[in-house]
Computed example of a mutant assay.
Amino acid sequence: MAGSRTSAGAPPRGRPRSEAVEQAIVEGVLRLLEDGVPLADISVERIARTAGVGKATIYRRWSGKEELVAHVLRCAEPVDPELPGTSLRDDLVVLLEALRRRGLASRRSTLLHNVYAEMKTSPRIWAAYHATVIAPRRNLTLEVLRRGRERGELPGDLDVDVVYDLFVGPMLVRSVVRPDAELPEGLPELIVDTVLRGLLPAGS
Rank of each mutant, 00 (worst) to 15 (best):
L158N: 03
L92C: 07
L196R: 02
L154C: 02
R197G: 10
T6Y: 05
V133A: 06
L158I: 06
R107N: 11
E185A: 12
L200F: 13
L92K: 03
P84I: 07
R31E: 08
L158P: 00
R124D: 15
R146A: 07
S7T: 07
R174F: 07
E97M: 03
S122Y: 02
S175D: 04
G186D: 00
R101V: 04
E19Q: 13
S106D: 11
R46G: 06
A40R: 11
R138T: 07
L33R: 00
A202E: 15
Y59T: 12
Y116K: 07
I191R: 00
P38V: 07
I25G: 06
E66I: 06
P12M: 07
A48Y: 02
V29E: 04
H113A: 06
V94N: 05
N114E: 13
V162E: 13
D91E: 10
A181H: 04
Y116Q: 14
E22R: 14
A8T: 01
R174N: 09
V72F: 00
E143Y: 00
E82W: 01
D41G: 10
I134R: 11
A131I: 06
E189K: 12
L92M: 06
E66L: 01
E189S: 08
I42R: 02
P11Q: 11
E67I: 10
I125W: 04
V162R: 10
A20T: 05
V94R: 04
R89V: 01
P155S: 05
G28S: 04
V72Y: 00
S175Q: 08
A128Q: 03
R17V: 15
I58K: 02
